[in-house]
Amino acid sequence: MTTVDHTADVPARPGDWVRERLSNALSEFTAAAALVVLFVVLSFASPHFLTADNLFNIGAQTAVIAIIATAQTMVIITKGIDLSVGSVAALAGVVGAITVRDLGFSIWAATAVAIAVGGVAGLVNGLLVTVARIPPFIATLGTMSAARGLVFIITGAVGVYGLPESFQLLGNGEILGIPFAVVLTAVVAVGVAFLLSQTRFGQYTYAMGSNLEAARRSGIPVGRHLTAIYVLAGLLVGLGGMIAASRVNSGQPNYGIALELDVIAAAVIGGASLFGGQGRIIGTLIGAFLIALVRNGAVLLDISIHYQMVIVGLIIWAAVYFDQYRRRRLESRG
C-alpha cells in the first residue's frame, strides 16, 4: 500500500505546526467576530433585518454561497482557483429548469441532472489542468466563458419560466421550520469537512497544496486526485445552481455573474490560503454568512449594487493581505 510523506503538508517542527494551527484559528475567530458585529449592527440599522421572512431569505442566500464556496475551498487548498463557478451554476440551474418544464422531470430528477452538468464542467476543468497542463486560472476562465455562452444559446438569453410550484422546494421549502436549503448546506458542509479532515482524500489534498512536487514523489496520484477534486467541486456547484434557480422559480441565464468573487471571498475570509495547503470548511461557512449578511444588509439599507461590489472587493483585499501577513510571520518564526 502506498504511504504518504506528510513532510509535504505539515511544518517541519512541532512548534511551527502549533503556530500554524493557532494562526488558522485566529482567522476563523476574526471572521466570526466580524460576523457577530455585523449582525448586531444590522439588527439596529434596519427594522426589517430580524423579521422571519428576512432571516429565512438570509439562510437560503447563504446556502447557495456556502455550498459553492465549499467547492471553491477544496480547489483553493490545492493552490488552484475556479473562476467558472458562476457560469456553471447558471448552466446547471437553467438545464434543471428546462428538464422540469419541457421534459416533465420531477424536482429530484432535475436536481440530479443539474448536479451532473456541474460534474461534467468540473471534469473538463480537471482535465484541462491535469492533462492539458493549463494553469487553473486560465482553464477555468475559459470554462466560465464557454458555460455562459451555452446558457445564452440554450435559453436564447431569455429566462426559463412556467415552472410548477414544486420546483421551489429546494430554494424555498422548509423542514420543521428550517429552510431546506440550509439543511442541504449542513449535509454538504459536514460531508466535505469529514472528507478533508478524516480521510486519505483530505490528506492528499492538503499535501498537494503544500508542496505538489513532494506529494508526487510521495506516491500520490496527483493528476487523478486533482481531477477528482474538480469533479467534486463541479457537482457541488451544480447543486448550488439548482438551489438558486429554485429560489426564484425560474432558470436565469444571467445568474451567477461575479458569483466567483463572493465564493472566493467567503473561502479566503474563513482562512483558506490562495497559496495552497490551508483551509477549513467551518471557516468557509463563517465567510459565506458574512458575505450573505453584507449583501442582505446592503439591500435593506438601499445601498447600490455598485457599492456592494466595492465592499466585496475591499473585503477580498483585506482577507488576502491578512493571509500574506500570517504567512510572513510563520516563515519569519520558522
Rank of each mutant, 00 (worst) to 15 (best):
S145M: 15
A147S: 15
R148W: 08
R148I: 05
G149A: 12
V151Y: 03
T155H: 00
G156P: 07
V158K: 14
V158C: 02
V158W: 06
G159F: 03
V160I: 09
V160P: 10
Y161P: 02
G162W: 01
G162I: 01
G162T: 07
E165H: 07
Q168Y: 01
L169T: 14
L169F: 13
L170G: 01
I178A: 11
I178E: 07
P179N: 05
A181W: 01
L184T: 03
L184A: 04
T185W: 00
A186W: 05
A186G: 12
V188F: 08
V190K: 11
V192E: 00
F194S: 13
L195M: 14
Q198P: 00
Q198I: 01
F201K: 02
F201G: 09
G202F: 07
Q203W: 06
Q203M: 13
T205W: 08
Y206H: 14
A207T: 10
M208W: 01
M208Q: 07
G209L: 10
G209M: 07
G209P: 09
N211S: 14
E213H: 12
A215Q: 08
A215K: 09
R216I: 04
G219L: 08
V222G: 13
V222H: 11
H225W: 11
H225R: 05
L226Q: 14
A228R: 12
V231T: 10
L235S: 05
L236A: 03
L236M: 09
V237C: 08
G238E: 08
G238F: 11
G240L: 04
G240W: 05
G241A: 11
G241Y: 11
M242I: 11
A245K: 02
A245I: 05
A245E: 00
S246L: 00
S246F: 00
R247M: 01
N249H: 07
S250K: 06
